[in-house]
Write a protein that binds this DNA or RNA. Structure first.
Lengths: 135, 135
DNA sequence: TTAAAACTATAAAGCTACTATAAGGTCAAT
DNA sequence: ATTGACCTTATAGTAGCTTTATAGTTTTAA
């Protein structure tokens, strides 16, 4: 399978595949005589794994870590559990921060009900005067 | 006021101030004979405005847009309202996406209760097999 | 058969919003 | 005279790709 087919199969761009290879997330495939990369089904699985991890919000470094666990299948998987726990708490703190931000934005938005002149705009005034009860 | 004082006043690094100047968000200040930047109170206000916008999650491009409205104080402020509305809905969709992600991660986490061998780890199996009811 | 379209390759730059590093000039105090 | 704190510019690094440039190869259509 060539790079274009693999890309279509998994739903990524060809450049992304080359990028993962360069980053050491995808093993370098064999080459044809003309230099074209030749992929196996294993590469497809590896690439799909990476993409699912990315959809879950894991960083490339975290994915690399998971791969290192996969390569040593008889060790305990507590590290995998810990990685996921860390990631979950990271996601949760992001949610909390964004919810606080949303509240702040909504209250700022309420300070101006359309169609004033910019000079009297409650939003710009609100930002300029810094009445943003932070934290 | 020199750049270090301004930085301390507003709570940013000096490089950040130079960066904003280079990006056209902060007007180039006068220079002393030795080339040092000299800032006025106006610069302080401008910088504080930028920082408050950044805390609200606005991009530098959005801040630039807001500044252009400030420069023309007699036009209607509907564009300002619209910018904020867009930003609020952007934040809300981020929150929604992260909440869905959290759910997915928690269910994945539940598929492995510690201390198995990596080979049997429910988390890695879950990602590999792709039983991630997406969307 | 030939020419265009589609695919592949590498290398380098661009994106965001800074942060960090390097190499050097200026100024006040010791 | 030199130390230290400050200032200058220019360049590279961060994450995870995407875009662009340039060029070679294969496939398809005329």
């Amino acid at each position: 399978m060539r790079i274009g087919q693999l890309a279509q199969l998994v739903g990524v761009e060809t450049q992304t595949i080359r990028f993962y290879e360069q980053q050491g997330l995808l093993p370098p495939p064999d080459r044809q005589d003309n230099g074209y990369r030749v992929y196996t089904e294993k590469h497809g699985e590896g690439l799909a794994f990476i993409r699912r991890c990315r959809i879950l919000g894991l960083s490339l470094a975290e994915i690399h870590e998971l791969q290192s666990y996969q390569d040593d299948p008889h060790q305990s998987c507590t590290a995998v559990n810990a990685l996921l726990d860390d990631h979950i708490s990271h996601v949760r703190s992001q949610i909390t921060a964004l919810q606080a931000l949303e509240k702040q934005l909504v209250s700022l938005r309420a300070s101006c009900n359309d169609d004033r002149e910019v000079e009297a705009c409650g939003i710009l005034a609100g930002i300029s005067e810094g009445n943003m009860h932070q934290q």
